[in-house]
Design a protein around this nucleic acid. Structure first.
Length: 680
DNA sequence: GAGCACTGC
C-alpha cells in the first residue's frame, strides 16, 4: 500500500511516509511557529517567568491585557500566583480565573493550591456547578467555569469582590466566554479599577484587542506574548486529497508503526461511526503484522464511552506495544494524553448548527479551522518532538478558515437572552457582542420568550421572567416547574426536569446482542404515556435501588448521567423552595402530570399523520419519531404528542415524547388555535 | 427500525 505524502523520499530509508523538511518554511508552518529548542535545554525554567515583571507592569498601566501563549506555557497556573504575590488580592479582594470546562477549573485549582502551599478551598479554590470548594473569607485565587462567573453577574452586576478577572482559553469562544467578555467590557466602563486578562491563542488576539479597544482610550489595552513550552512538531501533508480519510488513517497508522520508533499515535476522526470503521480496518490488518513489529493496541475515545472505557487510553502501553488512540474532537482540548508522538489529523469535525428559521439543530461535518489543525498537531509535542500527518494536501490547508465560528453564532439564544435581559441589557441589537448572533436567532429567541410569558410586548422582563432567569434550566422546563404548583405535581415534574436536562441516560451499545439486551432493559421502565413518564420511572427505580453504579450497569443505564440527574434535581429543588413552589406528588394521576408537561412543551406539539410520521403544529413539518422513543413502535392513542426536542439528521426527528389530549393545548397561546382554524 | 462532536448554568 503506498502513501503519497508531501515531498516523498526526502528522508528515511525507502520510506514513502516521509515528513516535510523542517527547513522549507512553506512546508512546515506549524513546526516553525512552535520550535522552542532553547526550552528543551532548560526545561525546569518556565518561559513565563521572564515575563513576570512585564505582566505586572502592564496590569498597573493598562486595564485590559490580552495574553497570548500556547497551552503549556504556564499562564493558567502561574499568572494568578504572580498577581497574588504582587498584592492584587489584598484587602479581601479576589483574583478570578475562568475556564470553559469544569475539569480544567478543578484540576488547575488543585495544582495551584499545591504550589502555593495551601489546602484546596482555602487560599486557592474553585467554583463549578454543584461544587463550591472555596471560602468566602479566605479564598484569594478562585478558578471557576465561565458560566459560573457570568451567573454571578446576575447577583453582583459589578463583580465587586474581584480585582482581576482572567478569562482563560478565550479562543475557544464558548457562548458563556463570549457573554462574559461582553459583560466585563460593560463593567469596566462603570468600574475602571477592575482588571481584565484575556488569555488566547495567537490567531484571535487582535480580535479581542480590537474589541476592548473600541470606545476606550488607546492606552487601555495591550497584548503580551508568552513563549510556549512545546516540543517541535513537524507536519506532513498528503500530496493529493484522499477519497476515504478513514481508510487512509488506518493505512498511515499501519505504515507509521512499521517505519517509526516508539511513541503512541493519536488519530482525529469525526464521530463514533468513523472511529468504529477505522478500528475495524485496523483489526482486519492485524493478523498480517510481521512477528518482529511493534504490537498495535487500538483504542477508541469519544464522549459516548463510559468513564472506565475512557480511562483505558491513559494506561501506558506495555513494552513492545504501541497505543493507537482513535478519537473524536474530545482529544483536541478536553482530554490530554501524554506519550503521544504521532498525530494523524483527518481534517474534519462535527459541529452543532442551529437554524433559526426552522428552529432545528443539526450535526454537520465540516473542515476544521487552522487554529484547530494547529491545536491537533500540538498534541504530538507534549513530551517529546513529534510528527503530525494531515490527511489532506497543503493546498487544502491553505483554504481552511482561520478559526471555527464562535458558538454564539450557531446556537439557540433563548436562555442567554433571558439572562441578558435580567442583567439590564434591553436593546440586544445595540449590545456590543464580541461576535453577534444572527439577527434571526435573536428575533426567534425574543418571540419564544414572549410566547412563554417571560417578556412583555415591549420586551421588558415579566415578574416570572425575572425569576426564571435565575433558574439553570430551559425556559419551557422552568415554566413547567412554576405550573406544577397549580397541578400539584412538583415532586414528579422536578424529576422530569432533571432527567430531560441530562443526555444519554440509557446506554446504547453498538448493535448486536448487547444492543438488544440494552433495549430489553430499557423496556422495563416503559410507561404507556410516553418517554417523560419512562424517564420518571427510571429515576425512581435508580433511587429506590440505592443509586448504585452496579444497578445502572445491569439495567443499561449510565451511572454518570443518573448521578448528574440527582445533582440537578436537588439544585432545582432549592430554586423551587426559594420561589415558594410546593413539592407535592400527583399520587399517580398521570393526566394531571401530562397536563403540566404541556405548559412547558405546548410549542412542541405534533399530530399523527397516516403515513406513521407526525406533523408539527407549528410549521407543519414532517417529524419522525426517534427510535429510542417508547412511541416509536406504536401510535399515540390520542394521535397527539408533545416532545422535548427535534433535531435534523438525515430527516427531522423528535425525541422524548408524551401523548396528550389536544384540548390541553388550548390553555396555552394562540398557535394551536390558529392552526386548528386553518385545518377546519 | 436509527444512530449522537463537545461544553456549560
Amino acid at each position: 500500500m503506498s502513501l503519497n505524502f508531501w515531498k516523498p523520499g526526502t528522508a528515511g530509508p525507502g520510506s514513502n511516509l516521509d515528513r516535510a523538511s523542517e527547513k522549507e518554511e512553506n512546508v512546515v508552518p506549524y513546526a516553525l511557529q512552535n520550535s522552542y529548542l532553547s526550552i528543551q535545554r532548560q526545561q525546569e525554567q518556565l518561559p513565563i517567568f521572564k515575563h513576570r515583571e512585564k505582566l505586572l507592569y502592564c496590569l498597573e498601566k493598562y486595564g485590559v491585557i490580552i495574553v497570548v501563549g500556547q497551552t503549556g506555557c504556564g499562564k493558567t497556573t502561574q499568572l494568578p500566583q504572580y498577581l497574588l504575590q504582587a498584592g492584587w488580592a489584598n484587602d479581601g479582594r479576589v483574583i478570578a480565573c475562568t475556564q470553559p470546562r469544569r475539569i480544567a477549573a478543578t484540576s488547575v485549582a488543585s495544582r495551584v493550591a499545591d504550589e502555593v502551599g495551601t489546602k484546596l478551598g482555602d487560599e486557592v479554590g474553585y467554583t463549578i456547578r454543584f461544587e463550591d470548594v472555596s471560602s468566602k473569607e479566605n479564598t484569594r485565587i478562585l478558578y471557576m467555569t465561565d458560566g459560573m462567573l457570568f451567573r454571578e453577574t446576575l447577583v453582583d452586576p459589578l463583580l465587586s469582590r474581584y480585582s482581576v478577572v482572567m478569562v482563560d482559553e478565550a479562543h475557544e469562544r464558548s457562548v458563556y466566554t463570549d457573554l462574559l467578555l461582553g459583560i466585563l467590557r460593560k463593567i469596566r466602563k462603570k468600574r475602571p479599577s477592575l482588571r481584565i486578562i484575556v488569555s488566547s491563542a495567537t490567531l484571535d488576539a487582535t480580535k479581542f484587542l480590537d474589541y476592548f479597544a473600541q470606545g476606550s482610550s488607546p492606552d487601555e489595552c495591550t497584548i503580551v506574548s508568552l513563549e510556549g513550552r512545546m516540543y517541535p512538531v513537524e507536519v506532513a501533508y498528503l500530496s493529493e486529497p484522499t477519497p476515504d480519510y478513514v481508510q487512509k488513517a488506518a493505512e498511515v497508522v499501519w505504515n507509521l508503526n512499521l517505519q517509526k520508533g516508539p511513541g503512541d499515535i493519536l488519530v482525529f476522526l469525526t464521530g463514533r461511526e468513523d472511529i468504529n470503521r477505522c478500528l475495524q480496518e485496523l483489526s482486519d490488518m492485524l493478523p498480517t503484522l510481521p512477528a518482529n513489529a511493534t504490537r498495535l493496541i487500538p483504542l477508541p475515545l469519544h464522549a459516548g464511552l463510559t468513564t472506565d472505557e475512557q480511562l483505558n487510553v491513559f494506561q501506558s502501553a506495555a513494552p513492545g506495544t504501541r497505543k493507537v488512540i482513535i478519537s473524536t474532537n474530545i482529544a483536541e482540548a478536553s482530554v490530554t494524553i501524554d506519550g503521544v508522538k504521532f498525530v494523524i489529523d483527518g481534517g474534519f469535525v462535527k459541529i452543532r448548527v442551529y437554524n433559526p428559521t426552522t428552529t432545528l439543530a443539526s450535526l454537520t461535518t465540516v473542515p476544521i479551522s487552522v487554529a484547530s489543525a494547529t491545536q491537533r498537531a500540538g498534541r504530538a509535542g507534549r513530551t517529546a518532538p513529534g510528527i503530525c500527518y494531515r490527511l489532506y494536501p497543503m493546498t487544502t490547508f491553505n483554504t481552511l478558515p482561520q478559526t471555527t465560528s464562535p458558538e454564539i453564532t450557531r446556537t439557540d439564544m433563548t436562555t442567554p437572552i433571558l439572562q441578558l435581559k435580567s442583567l439590564g441589557v434591553n436593546d440586544l441589537m445595540k449590545f456590543d457582542w464580541v461576535s453577534a448572533p444572527p439577527a434571526e436567532t435573536v428575533l426567534r429567541a425574543l418571540e419564544g420568550l414572549h410566547a412563554a410569558g417571560m417578556i412583555d410586548e415591549h420586551g421588558k422582563l415579566t415578574p416570572i421572567g425575572e425569576q426564571v432567569s435565575e433558574c439553570p434550566v430551559e425556559v419551557g422546563i422552568a415554566r413547567m416547574l412554576f405550573r406544577s404548583k397549580d397541578m400539584k405535581c412538583g415532586e414528579e415534574i422536578l424529576t422530569i426536569a432533571a432527567m430531560t436536562s441530562v443526555q444519554d441516560v440509557f446506554v446504547i451499545p453498538d448493535g448486536g446482542a448487547a444492543g438488544a439486551l440494552a433495549e430489553l432493559e430499557r423496556r422495563k421502565f416503559t410507561a404507556e404515556e410516553g418517554d417523560h413518564f419512562t424517564l420518571l420511572n427510571a429515576y425512581n427505580a435508580f433511587t429506590r435501588y440505592g443509586r448504585s453504579s452496579g444497578w445502572c450497569k445491569s439495567h443499561a443505564m449510565s451511572f454518570r448521567a443518573m448521578s448528574r440527574a440527582v445533582s440537578i434535581r436537588s439544585q432545582l429543588k432549592k430554586y423551587m423552595q426559594r420561589f415558594n413552589l410546593p413539592i407535592e406528588s400527583c399520587e399517580g394521576d398521570s393526566k394531571r402530570l401530562a397536563r403540566c408537561l404541556v405548559s412547558g412543551y405546548w410549542r412542541n406539539a405534533a399530530r399523527w399523520a397516516p403515513d406513521g410520521t407526525y406533523r408539527s403544529v407549528r410549521g407543519n413539518m414532517v417529524l419522525h419519531v426517534h427510535p429510542t422513543s417508547v412511541l416509536f413502535t406504536r401510535k399515540s392513542r390520542t394521535g397527539w404528542v408533545i416532545f422535548h426536542e427535534m433535531e435534523e439528521t438525515t430527516k427531522t426527528q423528535i425525541r422524548v415524547l408524551t401523548e396528550i389530549e389536544p384540548e390541553w393545548l388550548l390553555d396555552h397561546g394562540h398557535a394551536y388555535n390558529e392552526k386548528r382554524k386553518e385545518q377546519e
